[in-house]
Simulated assay, not measured.
Amino acid sequence: MTQTAPISDEQIRQLVDSFYDKIRADADLRPIFERVVAGDCETRLAKMYEFWSSVILTSGFYKGSLVAVRKHMGGLEIGLLDRCLALFGESCDELLDRETAGLSWLKAAHVAESLKLLLFCRPDRPWLRNAS
């Protein structure tokens, strides 16, 4: 097994920039992204650098909450969240060595699953139990 150098803060910034460039280029995801950044892209990207640093490096820099993000995510469907994860994976594969890309994508997949639970899980609506 080869030893992989830890991902740097600069690589995380490049990864986030690449990922959000892909989101902005996607006709379905761009309107959601624009609503979330609401004219303050630099501040939002700085928060995303902190967030992904916290996720990938477990740095603890990010002090926000996924629950707070939920209110800005109107129009995001499970399929679009899956597309976001695929775009993140593309950026990982383009910018990182294979092992680091795989580990970073796996952490992103855990974030995506958490977001799915926050955005789409409705215990008050037992629609899955009643589905035929």
Rank of each mutant, 00 (worst) to 15 (best):
R35I: 00
G39T: 08
K47L: 11
V37F: 09
A108Y: 00
K22Q: 11
W105K: 14
R98G: 07
E94M: 09
K22C: 04
V55L: 11
E34Y: 00
E50R: 15
D28H: 03
E77G: 14
R70F: 01
E34M: 06
P31G: 01
L87F: 04
A38E: 14
R98F: 13
S65N: 07
G102C: 04
E34P: 02
R35Y: 11
A108C: 05
M73K: 08
L95H: 06
V55E: 06
I32W: 05
A27E: 13
V67R: 12
L96C: 02
H110M: 10
A68N: 13
A25H: 08
G64Q: 05
E50D: 15
L85F: 04
C41L: 14
G75T: 10
L85A: 14
E94P: 01
D28V: 02
S65D: 08
K107I: 00
A38W: 11
G60C: 08
L76W: 08
K71S: 12
K107P: 00
L115I: 05
A68R: 14
D28A: 13
S114F: 03
L106F: 08
Y49F: 06
G60P: 01
K47A: 15
K22N: 11
L45E: 12
G39L: 07
E77D: 15
L66R: 08
K47R: 10
M48D: 05
V111E: 02
K47E: 15
I56V: 13
G39C: 08
A112K: 12
Y49H: 10
A112R: 13
G60F: 03
F33A: 00
Y62D: 11
H110S: 13
K107V: 00
D40L: 04
C92E: 01
K107Q: 07
L76Q: 09
L96M: 03
L106K: 10
A109S: 13
L29V: 01
D97A: 10
K116E: 10
D26Y: 00
E90Y: 05
L45I: 09
I32E: 03
E77A: 15
R70G: 02
A25R: 13
K63H: 10
D93S: 08
A68H: 12
G60V: 03
S59K: 01
A25F: 07
K116R: 09
G102E: 10
M73R: 09
P31Q: 04
E90M: 08
S104V: 05
Y49T: 03
G39H: 09
I78F: 12
E90R: 12
V111P: 03
D82W: 13
M73L: 15
